[in-house]
């Protein structure tokens, strides 16, 4: 059974329709991505799921609870990490976790949580003296301190350096492995591709596609490109005869072969039979970026 069910969700801000009939379900244990450009309605959608905003239409159920009617009960089992939410500068890491733990019926063990997030040596450090990455980790810890069954993480790695981003991704996978269902709101393609089981691509308040990362790219094009420098000359026809190959182009010493999903294997075996070595071999796949541009007609701003 789905742990989160969203049906025909609508939210207006004045005359602007921010969310325009969004429906999806999230299965227990899944990492579900909501991907879209800025202003697409991603945050508004999750705020309606969290009960931080009232909806203007449709229905939302999280573990059978209605976020508007059962707000306090839902928040016992829902961990929420907001973008742009800070703490008082002088509160210490350990104090913040103890304080937030006191808000829940069955909180997590804060010592273990501090350890898991790599903040042991920062326990006595005031929030204002933490680095951006450390503040973000504390923010994730606060979202997890109530032992939630579902966690909603909004723009998790915005503003983090590459190492901190990768560490955060590892952490999210650990959290999922402990049985928490995760909704991840992001405008980073690599983040969605790396973490999500399924992705809803949102644009101007609507879901334009909902699939696995591989499914989304396949939907746009099954095409693959193989590029290499052959060790000996050969005629294009050698490859064009293969059913997997659509086109053969030459650029300088390089050959670029375009074809379907199995093109690499087909080309490699023909070359091997003819004792041609393919140097500097590279496979170029349609990326999630390409898929996104094809689906929304926009590119994501980084």
């Amino acid at each position: 059974m789905a742990i989160i069910e969203v049906r025909d969700l609508v939210k207006d801000y004045g005359s602007m329709r921010a969310v325009d009939g969004i429906s999806f379900e999230v299965e227990e244990g899944e990492i579900f991505g909501i991907l879209g450009p800025n202003g697409a309605g991603k945050t508004t959608t999750v705020e309606c799921i969290e009960g931080l905003r009232s909806r203007d239409g449709g229905s939302v159920r999280v573990m059978g609870l209605d976020p508007e009617r059962d707000g306090p009960e839902l928040k016992q089992v829902l961990g929420i990490q907001l973008q742009e939410s800070r703490l008082p500068d002088r509160i210490r890491v350990g104090e913040a976790l103890d304080l937030y733990a006191s808000f829940y019926r069955s909180p997590a063990n804060t010592d273990r949580l501090i350890e898991k997030l790599g903040l042991e040596r920062k326990r006595k450090t005031p929030f204002g003296k933490l680095s951006g990455g450390q503040q973000q980790r504390l923010s994730i810890a606060l979202a997890l301190v109530g032992n939630p069954r579902v966690a909603v993480l909004d723009e998790l790695t915005t503003g983090l350096d590459p190492q901190a981003r990768r560490d955060t991704w590892d952490l999210i996978e650990q959290v999922r492995n402990s049985g928490v269902t995760i909704i991840l709101v992001t405008h980073f393609m690599d983040e969605a591709e790396r973490l999500c089981d399924r992705i809803a691509v949102v644009d101007t308040g609507k879901i334009v596609a909902l699939d696995t990362p591989a499914g989304l790219t396949a939907r746009v094009s099954e095409e693959q490109r193989v590029r290499f420098r052959p060790s000996a000359a050969f005629a294009d026809a050698l490859l064009l005869d293969l059913p997997e190959v659509a086109r053969v182009e030459r650029s300088g010493p390089h050959v670029v072969v375009t074809g379907d999903g199995n093109v690499l294997q087909a080309v490699a075996s023909v070359l091997a039979r003819n004792q041609i070595v393919a140097a500097e071999l590279r496979v170029e796949q349609v990326s999630l970026d390409d898929a996104f541009v094809a689906l929304t007609g926009k590119s994501l701003e980084h």
């Binding site: 969290e50 306090p72 928040k75 829902l78 929420i80 703490l87 008082p88 937030y100 829940y104 109530g146």
Partner: peptide, 12 residues
């Protein structure tokens, strides 16, 4: 700074 907003994400 969103301190009040963050508290809205909790049961309290």
């Amino acid at each position: 700074r969103g301190v009040l907003r963050r508290m809205r994400t909790t049961p309290v």
